[in-house]
Design a protein around this nucleic acid. Structure first.
Lengths: 189, 189
DNA sequence: TAAAAGGTTTACCGATCGGTACTCTATTAG
DNA sequence: CTAATAGAGTACCGATCGGTAAACCTTTTA
């Protein structure tokens, strides 16, 4: 029961930051929208930046858990999972509350590479790339790390166009390319 | 001579916003770093947002001019130009003052699609995609608009990874994929 | 020569920023 | 029963936010 309030705070703050931006969200607004007093917030986190880092960690765990979990649901073999990532992304982009990548925004608003918030953002993309490389290796594909880099490229590009593009289905465009790449990386062919 | 001060302001403001972010840059800081008085700034622009829009328009003209100009320098045929885009991007990423895509940041900080700043950002990527489609068509490649969408995907992904990635050469990774795509879109093959 | 016009300087506005101090209340553990 | 703890509420801090007003200087134009 002791941990609950803090988790509730992080969860709600994550949603608000995601919807509203980091710098654009003041602490007073956080108090109003979470229903948690400022005193209580600052008992759990020394600064606003600390809270943002916690929100990003929470989001990282949730997003990676959802993405790779959905990939496993959609496909059984590692090889098919790599392609299914783009179907999962397509679903994500079409959710009504999709507002782009929270980590890209964090990196935009806190550009200093030394800043903990920026670090958390770059960590997130590094973790995704690493997991993709694992799956590519598990699938027995040729040059798995190079393939993983290219798939990460497609994934990030799709997210950007889903956020900044005018309509279209960037996830499916990316999927078409991904199929070719995975196909060419298949041995004995 | 009348237009000069305004142009000087926009030019300097663009650099400051790009380096420092939009919300993170206060008007007082703009006054200090540009050497232009606040009164004078507000004679040219009614609000800070108006100045930001002008800065983005300036950046859009410069960036697209530079990118497609460099592509034309690096390659003579439209087909080779599409691939040369990634060499140009590689050069851009390795400039010492590369700080990511200004329009992605603008879109991150001003999420409302109705906001003029967000509009300017999405306009920029739409213009790039359109120009790519033109070149693809000029090159006589199959399904030029689909190819252009995929190349835009690779370009945006490369920018993201150049900004948020840990080292690597995302532009060259993207180039490898682009070569395959252009190759497959070549008729009579 | 006079008078606009463009620019700077200084001071200031109310609002909001992140963060703190203090009081009060309700729950819970010894 | 009591003491400790967690949280809410209120009020406040100095700093900064975007933006304005007024006085002054200098250059161009009529």
């Amino acid at each position: 029961m002791r941990q609950t309030k803090r988790e509730e705070l992080v969860e709600k703050a994550t949603a608000i930051f995601y919807r509203n931006g980091f710098q654009a969200t003041g602490m007073d607004r956080l108090v109003t929208e979470t229903g948690i007093s400022k005193t209580s917030i600052y008992k759990h986190f020394k600064t606003k930046d600390d809270l943002i880092v916690a929100a990003l960690k929470s989001r990282d765990a949730f997003l990676r858990g959802w993405l790779f979990g959905r990939m496993a649901q959609l496909a059984s073999t590692p090889r098919e999972q790599l392609i299914a990532m783009f179907d999962a992304l397509h679903e994500w982009f079409n959710e009504p509350d999709f507002h782009g990548c929270m980590f890209a925004k964090a990196s935009s608003e806190y550009q200093d590479p030394e800043h903990p918030i920026n670090r958390e953002a770059t960590d997130h993309v590094a973790r995704i790339s690493a997991q993709l490389a694992e799956i590519a290796e598990e699938a027995g594909l040729n040059q798995p790390t190079e393939l993983a880099r290219q798939l990460a490229l497609l994934k990030e590009g799709a997210v950007v166009l889903a956020t900044m593009g005018r309509g279209g289905t960037p996830a499916l465009d990316a999927k078409a390319v991904a199929i070719k790449l995975v196909d060419e990386a298949t041995p004995d062919k």
